[in-house]
Design a protein around this nucleic acid. Sequence first.
DNA 1: CTGAAAGCGCTAACAG
DNA 2: CTGTTAGCGCTTTCAG
Lengths: 347, 347
Amino acid sequence: METGQNQERRRNKATIVDVAKKAGVAISTVSHVLNHTAPISEETRKRVQQAILDLDYTPNMLARNLRQKYSNVIGVIVPDIENEFYANVASGIFRRADLEQDTVFLVDSGYSLEKEKMQVESLVKRQVDGLIFLGGSKDEELIDWAHKQNVAVVLGDRRYRNYCSVESDNFKAMRDLVLWVYGLGFRKIGYVSESLDMTNLQDRYNGLREGFHQCSLAIDEQWILNDSWLKLEKVDAAKSLMNQMVRRIKAENMPEIFLTSSDMIAIGIMDALIQNGYRVPEDISVVGFDDIRLVQYYNPPVTTIRQQCRKMGESCYQMLRGVLQGHIQDQHIVLETELICRQSVRL
Amino acid sequence: METGQNQERRRNKATIVDVAKKAGVAISTVSHVLNHTAPISEETRKRVQQAILDLDYTPNMLARNLRQKYSNVIGVIVPDIENEFYANVASGIFRRADLEQDTVFLVDSGYSLEKEKMQVESLVKRQVDGLIFLGGSKDEELIDWAHKQNVAVVLGDRRYRNYCSVESDNFKAMRDLVLWVYGLGFRKIGYVSESLDMTNLQDRYNGLREGFHQCSLAIDEQWILNDSWLKLEKVDAAKSLMNQMVRRIKAENMPEIFLTSSDMIAIGIMDALIQNGYRVPEDISVVGFDDIRLVQYYNPPVTTIRQQCRKMGESCYQMLRGVLQGHIQDQHIVLETELICRQSVRL
DNA sequence: CTGAAAGCGCTAACAG
DNA sequence: CTGTTAGCGCTTTCAG
């Protein structure tokens, strides 16, 4: 932004001084009627109110917050707002925050640590009271830094140290899923996931292993895909990766079912499978994760693990308020998931 | 937020004074090394840098912006971040803003004027340089107010007065669509849209009428649905509304094709149609609008009008920078749309 | 109940 | 090249 220009902006905005002058009262009186911070005679209040209206005065929060040491603003950092899951969680935060008097500012880091750093610094420098980190990875230093700068932090869909957090029971979800498909008779089980650099992904993978273990199944590495590419362009990456796998593995050696860490990945896989002549679920079954809107309309509708996105957002916000008020710390909420049976699994 | 608590927060944060003291220099010197606003000897700079590191000092932007009169922050207001269209546009803004040094804060108004008002006021009071309003309606006063408060405003996917705006060519898109389906042989054409309280919706509707006019087709009101409910829960509302229509209108009097103002609505309609025994597109065809990801995976894949969402976001941002720098005003960008033929229209 | 005055943390002249 | 100082707009004692 060009400075010369901007210095012109806001030049003629009315300040509290103007209001005081116009109303013929002291500055502090205006402040008091504004904040109901002292009893003011009906008569002067009226005059002040009128002056405010006349001048179209709007208090400058920067100045106010500079004094007050708190801003009633919280920041939310998401890796990718186009991802329906994050959009849903964010929505939960917004809806919940609307009920209070907080304002929440959302920023999108685009899965880039560098950008995230800029965003978080920007938020912290503007004295937000708290920060909610949704997803994200390898940014632990940043979280610690924010915390050291005295801003309250809450983690959503992830976990780190003893920062307050709320997440799904990823381990249990995936373990139980394995047990379920095992019960259905599946033995050749594949798994496709983003690289395991996020705790939630790691948990799911661990749950998977535990499930395998409980069923005395050995993991066949050739059926396991963990690719970091899957994080950014889930559908396309999954499609391409699955195409490779189909080329690499003969039909009789393919898994009977693919479990995944994300609905988008499941979609990509099914696209590839179908293109390669496999029928879903007759030849190969697929299970998603998240239950985003897309999967219920896919053909076939996708069996998936539903996360309580909205609830997650609401809990994050509630929790943040708790730590802000000082009566919560080191709390970790775990949300139950739910298996949604549709038609992508052969029963 | 409880005041007592918050006043404790940030108590021990280092300020520029601490840094100056520690480095044994004047305050302004610190400021200068921070902002590269005067040449500083290598030696003192080093000392200052070290002090900054030692104290974990972070500049307080509130204080800085209080002096500088501009904040390098822009705000984005969306009606609903869960709506993929807005998420895409927002993403375009974020991506484009990352390239510059601006930080952008997004807020979600949840289609509520009251909430939007709070959000916008909050943004303006915090001295954002500019605001991008995406969608929204009946908030003209608010826009005027923001403008009067000296913040630059740009409108996305809408239009109002001579505020800078960027939107799709909604009129043309819908008119051409009518001509196209007419050319395909369709004569009984229905239309389902949110209520016409947004300029973009109004434009589409006008385009529709113009198309009808050019084809010398009369509009059959019983085939036209404009319901405000469709704004909030598009799919469910559309489904329910279509169920009603099916019950109201005998099969032989149903339209041969439904045009819509949104993909979500198209989905809802198709769901209802299919549930009622109609085949899409054999019995009735449907066309969407937006080309969100969902529709390419629907069964059948949906023919739709693609909007350049990402581009819209990028243009909004660019334009805002333009007006901030003062070399743009009263500019209105119109983005072309594209007809994406899939299988929901009988050819 | 109202007013005067001291800052909050920082920048921007202006001197030295 | 470095230091002094006067505010930015507001809140908040503390007197009156």
